[in-house]
Write a protein that binds this DNA or RNA. Sequence first.
DNA 1: AGATTTTATCTACAATGTAGAACAAATATC
DNA 2: GATATTTGTTCTACATTGTAGATAAAATCT
Lengths: 110, 110
Amino acid sequence: MGKEYLGEFEELILLMVTLLKEEAYGLGICEELKKQTGRSTAIGAVHATLNRLENKGFVESYLGDPTKERGGRRKRLYTLTAYGREALVYSRDIRVNIWTQIPELAIKIL
Amino acid sequence: MGKEYLGEFEELILLMVTLLKEEAYGLGICEELKKQTGRSTAIGAVHATLNRLENKGFVESYLGDPTKERGGRRKRLYTLTAYGREALVYSRDIRVNIWTQIPELAIKIL
DNA sequence: AGATTTTATCTACAATGTAGAACAAATATC
DNA sequence: GATATTTGTTCTACATTGTAGATAAAATCT
């Protein structure tokens, strides 16, 4: 693990990218975030965060092909890198480990 | 739940306060954080964050009595408020719920 | 009283969180 | 084939959090 930590929002965005797999792009992520957390965010916030995540090597992106749907600009699709996955696992492990020591927050693990 | 989210570091500090119970004060939290996460932070960072958490109502503080140990200034002791506990539980639930949908991150829960 | 210890407070700056406006690239329609 | 419409990204700016170091304050020891 590097010395870099994921910010709160960064982590959420990274989780949405992971969840959406092949369909992870700005607007879609924004909607999924709303669906998963109830949290409304401006699209600009999502893109700014995606850029930062890419600069730090947590995700990679490429331009998708135009879809047949109606019109509109091409999507920029994001995928998790190995480093990104590592960061998510690391963050999860730290939390689970701490929660375990706090009865009120502990999760029963098999 | 309010509209406020815990930042990444804020959440960690709040967890340390919860963990340390009656012995939660700046330096101690700093050490516990190191112990729990391996992360070294300047004491100023911890205090700044504690102040913000207090302003937002996640913790409360009071000055402790002088200890007999050697000398030194009195500790400012922090305790979690009901609102703080709520925020921790909320944050945990959101994450666990998302992880569950990602095979690679899922935790087996009883 | 002065030295030493423990700890908090203050001040600043960097990184992350957040929003909205401007812009670009598709398709549809006439 | 020009223009309206749709979908989506990029740009710019500012607020909030993250982070550090220096300074100051209270306590005990000698």
